[in-house]
């Protein structure tokens, strides 16, 4: 009898030990909560009928609070980042941020009709997790889409979003490949990317 009891206890312990690491990764719940908080924050801002200036200020705050802007900017610059001077890097970061803010100003209203439901989160090694969810447009204009959020979970650093992927299309990979093309088409000049970003921000504002 004791043998049977010991066998059952050992089996139970073994099962707990095997299941525990997968279900106890705190990064997954943390990442899901981060995304849900971001969505809630955006919905609160949209509901307050903000002016363009308020949208800009809120977007600036949202970028700093929820996104790892430095990592995003560096990744988007591609390999050219390493050869850029400190002055170019600083100018590029400002120009890139300006593009994001200009886009937010013109497209923020689109969030009004979107609903987000968290689905799941998976770990991709010890520095990255991907949280996924479903976006539903209440007007029915757009079909439901799966959205994945790549979240950096580097030990000792705050957990932050670094990429958004819709139907296998990564926003940041797209931006990086576009930026790389600009630099290579202009003989490897990093300044060409900065100029193009400034021009883009201006053209988005003009088109408003």
């Amino acid at each position: 009898m004791f043998s049977a009891l010991r066998h059952a206890t050992l089996s139970l312990l073994l099962a707990v030990v095997m299941i525990a690491p997968a279900s106890a990764d705190p990064r997954l719940a943390e990442g899901t909560t981060l995304v849900e908080n971001l969505v809630e924050r955006i919905q609160t801002v949209v509901a307050a009928e903000p002016t363009p200036e308020e949208v800009r200020a809120e977007t600036n705050a949202i970028i700093d609070e929820f996104f790892d802007y430095n990592t995003i900017a560096r990744f988007a610059a591609g390999q050219a980042w390493r050869k850029a001077t400190d002055a170019e890097k600083a100018e590029y970061k400002l120009a890139f941020r300006e593009v994001l803010l200009s886009l937010a100003e013109t497209q923020f209203e689109q969030f009004r009709t979107l609903e987000y439901t968290s689905k799941d989160a998976v770990a991709k090694g010890n520095k990255l997790i991907v949280a996924s969810g479903m976006v539903h447009d209440i007007t029915g204009k757009y079909p439901d889409s799966v959205v994945s959020w790549r979240i950096s979970t580097r030990p000792g650093k705050p957990i932050k979003i670094i990429d958004i992927e819709v139907e296998n299309i990564s926003m940041l990979i797209t931006q990086q490949q576009e930026n790389t093309a600009i630099i290579r088409q202009n003989g490897g000049k990093f300044q060409a990317l900065i100029d193009a970003l400034k021009e883009q921000a201006q053209s988005i504002k003009t088109a408003e």
Partner: peptide, 26 residues
Amino acid sequence: KYNAIDPYAKTRSLYFQYRDGQIVGL
């Protein structure tokens, strides 16, 4: 077409990513 800094490069990037998703499975 109107907002990308390089519409050609952006289209190429989107094409490869979308196609990979179709082939590998989302």
